[in-house]
Amino acid sequence: MITFAAVTKRFGENPPAIEGISFEVDKGEFLFLTGHSGSGKTTLLKLLTREYTPTSGEVTFNGKSVNKIRKSQVHHHRRAIGVVFQDYRLLNELNVWENIALALQIVNKPQTEIEERVTDLLRLVELTDKAYSFPSQLSGGEAQRVSIARALATAPMVLLADEPTGNLDPQNTLKIAQLFEKINELGTTVLFATHDLSILSALKHRRIHLEKGKIESDTKEKEEEPHTKTTVQVETL
């Protein structure tokens, strides 16, 4: 479903943010992207949403080259991807309901469908009673759940999460992690960038560990110990 083939992204004359990255993600898979700050996790996700274009290599999504999507068509590509950020990125002037509905209004869904879908999503993230609260009235965990509901509003094929628990306490972190697990079980592919060890120990999924913009290890299956880079390359071959 998602393929990175020898992808390198360089910003100006600086050392590459990611270099020679190659991996594949299957439909319905849950993938952790791990690594220290600056290891290239966010760059990798932004390449997938076409916020960045690779300096070399190719990113494909659902069989289509992301690099070749015309600027005027990028929004169609992004509608198939839900994104959750560490800082929630909710619109402060809109309440919880409106924030979730915004994603559906953007894709021109009829009002009846919007109402139905937002109600379902609020139920999924257990925030029905907060529908008319504004982001400033929510806790970090609640705000992040709203952000997840919004990302899921258009029923994306894949959900990207960029350090979604970075601002949360351990209890909320676990709740959010379990929510992602539930979403994945419902069939959505999840790419989860984190360096939170508590999540990694709680959820046993494939992990790609990045180090200075390169893949350091990739566990291909659940419960497996990380393979070394050499092992991954051999397996790919």
């Binding site: 949403t49 916020e51 005027s72 929004h75 169609h76 590509h77 992004r78 509608r79 994104v83 990125r89 619109l91 915004l102 994603a103 953007i106 894709v107 919004r150 258009t154």
Partner: peptide, 11 residues
């Protein structure tokens, strides 16, 4: 935020 959510330029 709207661009990430898939808003077209016209929107």
């Amino acid at each position: 935020i709207m661009r990430i959510l898939g808003a077209s330029r016209w929107y």
